[in-house]
Write a protein that binds this DNA or RNA. Structure first.
Lengths: 198, 198
DNA sequence: CATTGTTTTGAACGAATGTTCAGTTAATTA
DNA sequence: TAATTAACTGAACATTCGTTCAAAACAATG
């Protein structure tokens, strides 16, 4: 036997990436074999190599497309005041990441398994995303709406805080996604409120 | 050849754990072979099995000892006011984790590779640590010193924010460890300051 | 229906994996 | 010094790994 009924490249390609996404997220890149991915798709190992030059590229492509989608979707409304831009970013981040738990997990956990060139490209994309938040913070500081000692650290603190949500949030839990968004908006905004002068 | 000059169990055991720690942190559990660990120690593969029943136990032991050390060291001074307890915890967390980057990295990245029983034990230990912080937050809320919508979420937000430091902080950088501690103390405390009523 | 081009199979490659163990050597004890 | 114990070697085990490729089977075209 060889080519099976109803085989199409347009279907197999995405299905391979979907299977890799799920398996990498669940077990980790290094712990997943090409044969497991093929089995998930319902295909033999060799067929995978019509769609990716190697395993490493499969991982890189998943990360790249996730981060480029993130950057494309994250268009900060510059007409808003800094406080509202910050609230918008917070809500955007939580919603976007919550809808893609597997992509997020991989993008933050499998950096080690990228070849140096690929690593640099992914880091650059992540840097672009962080810059969008930092720009909001910087502009808030320049108008006096925000107060913080170091905008770079504040940026990283906010990102870490928001990204941490994906490690514990499960749908159907105690709190709705809206509850979480509004509480995080409050917490993030508080980070930049000047201390009261007694 | 067999037993080499100067071979002692008291030395080899710790050296194996140290090598595993470094290699797991650098390349990930699944990507490191027992032969690599043995080579790092300067020993043959078989010798490792005098010190660990298998590779999985090696990982578990690293995580367990890290978290138990963390719990043992984290004794919150209950005589302080909640604000000061929170500041103490923030400084403690940053300092303790900064001194052990490899342990921290493994404890947060390799949970997937734990067998179910081991995973449950590690999660329980981590829960104990988070509880120490939550107790501070709860006590602050009960005295009115703190304000927050949900203590559980606030706890996880603070932990995520603090733990995120290890992903970017490198010694010799722009900021000293003391700078970082004091800025994070400020940010964490701000998280619990009630919003101004106009 | 015959031909062409695409997609998949199935088997194979060498290398690497975790683990076991009989045998060998160094250190310790008597 | 001789006997015993502890530590390690070196080789082997059966699997599994990522990757390659000729051959086979299907879909599309004329």
């Amino acid at each position: 036997m060889a080519r099976t009924t109803g085989s199409h490249a347009e279907q197999t390609g995405p299905r391979i990436r979907a299977a890799a996404l799920t398996l990498f997220a669940r077990h980790g890149f290094a712990a997943v074999s090409m044969r497991q991915i093929a089995a998930e798709v319902g295909v033999q190992v060799g067929a995978l190599y019509n769609y990716t030059p190697d395993k490493q590229s499969l991982l890189f492509e998943l990360m790249r497309s996730h981060l480029e989608g993130l950057l494309e979707a994250c268009v900060v409304p510059t007409n808003l005041a800094p406080q509202d831009q910050l609230a918008w970013f917070t809500r955007f981040h939580i919603r976007y990441h919550h809808a893609r738990p597997e992509e997020v997990f991989i993008a933050y956990m499998e950096l080690r398994n990228l070849a140096p060139d690929n690593f640099a490209r992914i880091e650059a994309l992540r840097g672009c995303y962080e810059k969008k938040l930092e720009d909001i913070i910087v502009s808030g500081c320049s108008t006096g709406a925000f107060n913080t000692r170091d905008t770079k650290i504040a940026t990283l603190a906010v990102i870490a805080m928001l990204t941490g949500i994906t490690t514990w949030f499960r749908p159907g839990g105690r709190l709705s996604l809206e509850d979480i968004q509004s509480q995080y908006v409050q917490m993030v905004q508080r980070l930049f409120v000047p201390d009261p002068r007694p």
